[in-house]
Amino acid sequence: MALSQSEVLAGLAEIVNDETGIAAEAVQLEKSFTDDLDIDSISMMTIVVNAEDKFGVKIPDDEVKNLITVGDAVNYITNAQ
C-alpha cells in the first residue's frame, strides 16, 4: 500500500538522520537539503539510494539535482510509489 506524504517524510527523516546525524525533527518539507541542512552531494546520493531501497522507488541520477527541498523529495517519492 502506498505511503502517505507524512509517512514518507518520517521515513526520509530517519534516512537523513542515519547518514548525517541531523535530528529527524529538523527534516521538514520546506528545508533545502544543501542550504538549510548542509547536506553535500555525496551524502545526498547515499540518502537517495537508501530512499530507493526503503520506498521501493527508482530515482534517476538526473532527477536528484531537481530535489532541492525535502518536500521535493517527499513529493517525488509519494508520486513514484
Binding site: 552531494s41 555525496i42 545526498m44 546520493m45 547515499t46 537517495v48 539510494v49 541520477d61 536528484v64
Partner: peptide, 12 residues
C-alpha cells in the same frame, strides 16, 4: 568524471 553517478555505482 560524473562524480555522483560513479559514486553510486562504486558503492552500491
Amino acid at each position: 568524471q560524473e562524480g555522483l553517478t560513479v559514486f553510486k555505482w562504486a558503492v552500491w
